[in-house]
Amino acid sequence: MPVTVSVLCVCLGNICRSPTAEAVLRTRAEEAGLALEVDSAGTGGWHVGHPPDRRAQAAAAARGYDLSRQRARQVVQGDGRFDLILAMDDQNAADLRRLLPPEAHDRIALFLDGAPETAGRSVPDPYYDDRFDHVLDLIEAAADGWVARLKAGR
């Protein structure tokens, strides 16, 4: 199954939302028979090299997603190569427009644009409020939407 689309999921520190989105999107794509290259990164570099937050790992594991091998990294210029760059919130999208070359800007979207009922909204950062299950609910819904769109060639 050849890779047809590359997707980068982006949040602030790459330890909660974007690694969760990476794992969910990869899993949902595999289940749908869609070959995707999926990665994640943060707009900030505070957690580079660290594994995802233990709470994010626990919430994801409870639903069958394994984040344990992921390590945080910061967005770099070369990430402009991705076909689709999915930001977790408006600030991440704005930061991506600052960090990536102009030719990548039209490939930046909000992750929740994948689900009509959540479009235009942000995936809230669960780092301070512990709403990891709520974040997973949103990410799963949007991942299913992106998989359906990408499978249909849109």
Rank of each mutant, 00 (worst) to 15 (best):
residue 56 A to H: 00
residue 68 S to F: 10
residue 77 Q to E: 15
residue 45 G to N: 03
residue 51 P to T: 03
residue 100 L to A: 10
residue 77 Q to K: 13
residue 107 R to H: 12
residue 87 A to G: 07
residue 75 V to P: 03
residue 57 Q to Y: 00
residue 73 R to V: 09
residue 80 G to E: 08
residue 75 V to M: 11
residue 48 V to T: 15
residue 48 V to Q: 05
residue 56 A to K: 01
residue 64 G to E: 04
residue 75 V to C: 09
residue 50 H to E: 15
residue 46 W to N: 06
residue 64 G to V: 03
residue 80 G to S: 13
residue 92 N to C: 10
residue 56 A to C: 03
residue 44 G to W: 06
residue 50 H to F: 09
residue 67 L to F: 01
residue 44 G to V: 08
residue 102 P to D: 03
residue 69 R to C: 05
residue 71 R to W: 13
residue 66 D to A: 11
residue 67 L to S: 00
residue 80 G to R: 12
residue 80 G to F: 06
residue 75 V to W: 04
residue 41 A to T: 02
residue 87 A to H: 01
residue 78 G to W: 12
residue 68 S to I: 01
residue 77 Q to S: 14
residue 105 H to C: 05
residue 64 G to Y: 01
residue 89 D to V: 13
residue 47 H to R: 01
residue 82 F to C: 11
residue 87 A to R: 03
residue 100 L to N: 07
residue 107 R to G: 11
residue 68 S to L: 09
residue 88 M to L: 15
residue 63 R to Y: 03
residue 101 P to C: 11
residue 62 A to I: 06
residue 96 L to W: 09
residue 50 H to C: 05
residue 45 G to P: 05
residue 57 Q to K: 06
residue 83 D to F: 02
residue 99 L to N: 12
residue 102 P to R: 10
residue 60 A to Y: 00
residue 44 G to I: 05
residue 79 D to N: 06
residue 56 A to N: 04
residue 82 F to P: 08
residue 73 R to N: 08
residue 64 G to H: 03
residue 54 R to M: 12
residue 56 A to G: 02
residue 84 L to W: 14
residue 93 A to I: 12
residue 71 R to T: 14
residue 44 G to T: 09
residue 44 G to K: 10
residue 44 G to E: 06
residue 70 Q to G: 11
residue 85 I to L: 12
residue 53 D to C: 04
residue 107 R to P: 09
residue 54 R to E: 15
residue 85 I to W: 09
residue 74 Q to L: 06
residue 94 A to N: 09
residue 64 G to D: 02
residue 101 P to G: 14
residue 40 S to Q: 06
residue 88 M to S: 08
residue 48 V to N: 02
residue 95 D to F: 08
residue 95 D to I: 13
residue 87 A to F: 03
residue 43 T to I: 13
residue 78 G to F: 11
residue 89 D to E: 12
residue 71 R to F: 13
residue 66 D to W: 14
residue 53 D to A: 00
residue 58 A to G: 02
residue 57 Q to L: 13
residue 69 R to V: 08
residue 84 L to D: 05
residue 71 R to N: 08
residue 48 V to P: 00
residue 86 L to D: 06
residue 59 A to I: 02
residue 96 L to C: 10
residue 50 H to L: 06
residue 61 A to E: 12
residue 87 A to P: 13
residue 86 L to F: 05
residue 42 G to L: 00
residue 59 A to Q: 01
residue 91 Q to Y: 11
residue 60 A to P: 08
residue 49 G to A: 06
residue 55 R to F: 02
residue 76 V to G: 10
